[in-house]
Nucleic acid binder design. Structure first.
Length: 388
RNA sequence: GGCGACAUAGCCAAGUGGUAAGGCAGAGGACUGCAAAUCCUUUAUCCCCGGUUCAAAUCCGGGUGUCGCCUCCA
C-alpha cells in the first residue's frame, strides 16, 4: 500500500473515531496504543515471571495456567473438556495446552521490539492488562466487552492481571448481547457485515441509537431495516412531542400553578423516578424508554388544553432532555429557518384555506411534501417538519 | 462432545412467585375541509410436557427450537 504500519493504524483509528462521534459516542479519557506501552507490557511480564506464573521457551514467554488456580472461573469453562486445538494448532512446547503467550519471539521480517527475551512482540492479551491497569488502576470498576471475548481473552486478561497484582481485576464484568444480522452473529467469516460508515449514510444515527436502546444490553439484538423503521416510528413520537411542547411555549402563560399544572408536575417527577429506577436496575434501557413514552402521552394530553403554564412546559422539556441525555438522545437543535420561497408557499396555502379553496391548498401541500416538507394543520395553526 | 444464553401479541420488547409495561403496525372512534399530529378504545393458551406452591411467564425436572463460546482474532 506504500504506507507504514503506523500510518495504516492511524487511518483506521481516525475512521473509528469519526464513526463513533457520529453515533454520539463520547471519547474516552484515554485511547492508548499497545505500541506506545512496550515498557509497561514488558514490566508486567517480568512481574509474572518473578511470581512463577510465567515461563520462557526459547524466545517466547507463556502464562502458566496451572499456577493460577482461579483460571477458568470467569468463563465457567470445564478446562478438561475444552476442545483442544479446535481453532488453531497447539504449540507443542507449552507445558499445558491452555497456556497462552505473553511474549512471542519475532520471526524473520515481523515488526518487533527489544525485550529481555530477545526481539519480539507482546502476546494478544497482555496489552489490555498493561494499559488498562496503567490508566484505570489495578482493579477496574467495570470491564465490558462482547460475549465472544469471555473466553479466552477476558479469562486470560484477568489471570495475567490478578496474577501480577494479587487483586481482583474487575469488580463487574458486563458482556453485551450481539448485534445479529439475520439472527446470526455479524462476522467477517460469515460475510454478513454492515459497517457503521455504511449505516450512517442511510439512517439517522439517532435512530440507530434508539433502536439499540430498545432492548436490554445483554440480549442479542437482531438487525434489519424493518426493525429500524419501527424504531424510527417510536423515536418520532418522542421528538414530535418535544417540538409540540416548544411551540406551545409561545401560547403558554400563567404564573400561578393550578391543579392541572400541579398534576402534570407530579407526573413528570413520577416518570423521572421510574426512568432512574429502571436505569439503576442493570441499565434497563427498554424499561426506561417506556417511562419516556408514558411521560410523552401525559405531555401531549396536557398541551391539548388552552390553559397551559410555561413553567410546567419548561419543566417537562428540561426533564426530558436531562433523561434523554443519559441515553444520548434529544439533544437540543437549533430551529431551522425555512427558505423565503417556502415560507411564501405556506402563506399562500393559508390564504387558500381561509377562502376554502381546498384543491389549491392541497396542491401546495403536495408540492411541499415532494420537497420534503410535511405540513400539519393544528388547532394552534400550521406547522411544518422535514420528512425524514 | 463440554459450557452457556435465549424462546412473551402480526413485529420489537420489559417483566425472575400474586395473575401480562411500553413501542411499531392494524382496526374502530374523537378532532380535521381532507390529511397529518394527538387523544380514546381494541388485539397474548407467556415454545411443549410434567412437578412444587393457596398462587408460576417467573422456581424445579424433562423435551423441542434458535444462537453463542470452546486455548496466541482481541
Amino acid at each position: 500500500m506504500g504506507i507504514t504500519m503506523e500510518q495504516l493504524a492511524e487511518m483506521f483509528i481516525d475512521a473509528y473515531l469519526e464513526d463513533a462521534e457520529a453515533l454520539g459516542i463520547e471519547k474516552a479519557d484515554h485511547h492508548p496504543r499497545a505500541t506506545h506501552h512496550m515498557k509497561e507490557i514488558i514490566q508486567l511480564i517480568e512481574t509474572l515471571m518473578e511470581k512463577g506464573l510465567a515461563y520462557q521457551v526459547e524466545g517466547d514467554v507463556y502464562f502458566d495456567t496451572t499456577a493460577f488456580p482461579q483460571y477458568g472461573r470467569l468463563s465457567q469453562q470445564n478446562l478438561e473438556e475444552l476442545e483442544s486445538g479446535a481453532r488453531i494448532e497447539v504449540d507443542e512446547r507449552k507445558k499445558n495446552s491452555l497456556d497462552f503467550a505473553l511474549w512471542k519471539g519475532a520471526k524473520e521480517g515481523e515488526p518487533s521490539w527489544e525485550s529481555p527475551w530477545g526481539k519480539g512482540r507482546p502476546g494478544w492479551h497482555i496489552e489490555c492488562s498493561a494499559m488498562s491497569m496503567k490508566y484505570l488502576g489495578e482493579t477496574l470498576d467495570i470491564h465490558a466487552g462482547g460475549p465472544d471475548l469471555v473466553f479466552p481473552h477476558h479469562e486470560n486478561e484477568a489471570a495475567q492481571s490478578q496474577g501480577a497484582t494479587g487483586k481482583p481485576f474487575a469488580r463487574y464484568w458486563m458482556h453485551v448481547g450481539y448485534l445479529n444480522i439475520d439472527k446470526q452473529k455479524m462476522s467477517k467469516s460469515l460475510g454478513n457485515i454492515l459497517t457503521v460508515r455504511e449505516m450512517r449514510r442511510k439512517i439517522d444515527p439517532q435512530v440507530i441509537r434508539f433502536f439499540m436502546l430498545s432492548a436490554h444490553y445483554r440480549s442479542p439484538i437482531n438487525f434489519n431495516f424493518e426493525l429500524l423503521e419501527q424504531a424510527k416510528g417510536g423515536l418520532e413520537r418522542l421528538t414530535t412531542m418535544l417540538s409540540s411542547l416548544e411551540e406551545s411555549l409561545e401560547r403558554a402563560n400563567g404564573i400561578s400553578l393550578e391543579d392541572r399544572d400541579l398534576k402534570m408536575m407530579e407526573a413528570v417527577e413520577e416518570y423521572k423516578e421510574k426512568f432512574i429506577h429502571s436505569m439503576d436496575d442493570d441499565f434497563n434501557t427498554a424499561d426506561a424508554l417506556a417511562a419516556l413514552f408514558e411521560l410523552t402521552r401525559e405531555a401531549n394530553i396536557y398541551i391539548k388544553e388552552d390553559k397551559i403554564n410555561a413553567r410546567v412546559i419548561q419543566n417537562i422539556l428540561k426533564t426530558f432532555r436531562e433523561l434523554g441525555g443519559v441515553l444520548g438522545l434529544f439533544a437540543e437543535q437549533t430551529k431551522e429557518v425555512l427558505a423565503p420561497d417556502i415560507e411564501e408557499l405556506i402563506q399562500k396555502r393559508q390564504e387558500a384555506r381561509k377562502n376554502k379553496d381546498w384543491p389549491k391548498a392541497d396542491r401546495i401541500r403536495d408540492q411541499l411534501l415532494s420537497d420534503g416538507i410535511i405540513l400539519e394543520d393544528t388547532p394552534q395553526g400550521v406547522r411544518w417538519k422535514r420528512k425524514s
